[in-house]
């Protein structure tokens, strides 16, 4: 599903972009060494250059790696398992932005335990409701650390 070379190139592309961002961001400031030492952009600029150069070299090495580059780092089966884990996680975070962490946690646990873990309704409901409730007690009541809340908590007058 994913060969080592593909993953290497993807990683190198990310490093290249991050390096470029560092260089672009650094150029908003002085990047030199003045009489009071290095300026605000001095280090970010050089770090960005290092990242860009290193990414290009690693990329070239990956392209020249031959057989090792073609070996799979992610088989179709592993890939499916990973996506099966990762997509719900993305959904969890996306829902949390809108509905708050408590509701999102309940939905996420409910979905994952039922659909992926194939647990019974009772176990699923127990965990999916128990964890947000325990979090509420722990964070809101005991630690007084407010977690992200959504429309449900507002409607209940809790947020």
């Amino acid at each position: 599903m994913l060969s080592r070379m593909q993953l290497e190139l993807a990683a190198v592309a990310v490093v290249f972009v991050l390096g470029s961002l560092a260089v672009i961001g650094a150029l908003e400031h002085e990047i030199g060494w003045a009489s009071d030492g290095p300026q605000a952009g001095y280090f970010p600029f050089r770090l960005g250059i290092i990242l860009i150069v290193a990414s290009l070299v690693i990329g070239a090495q990956a392209l020249a790696s031959g057989a090792r580059g073609r070996e799979l780092v992610l088989s179709r089966e592993s890939g499916r398992r990973m996506i099966g884990f990762f997509l719900p996680l993305v959904g969890y975070v996306a829902i949390a932005q809108v509905l708050g962490l408590y509701v999102a946690t309940a939905l996420y646990l409910g979905f994952v335990l039922r659909a992926m873990g194939r647990h019974g309704w009772q176990a699923t409901a127990g965990v999916a409701l128990g964890v947000p409730l325990a979090s509420w007690m722990l964070f809101e009541v005991w630690f007084t650390v407010p977690l992200l809340k959504g429309p449900l908590e507002r409607w209940l007058g809790l947020a």
Partner: peptide, 10 residues
């Protein structure tokens, strides 16, 4: 793991 894994994620 199918229970503790997701709980750790949360």
């Amino acid at each position: 793991f199918t229970i503790i894994g997701p709980v750790i994620v949360t």
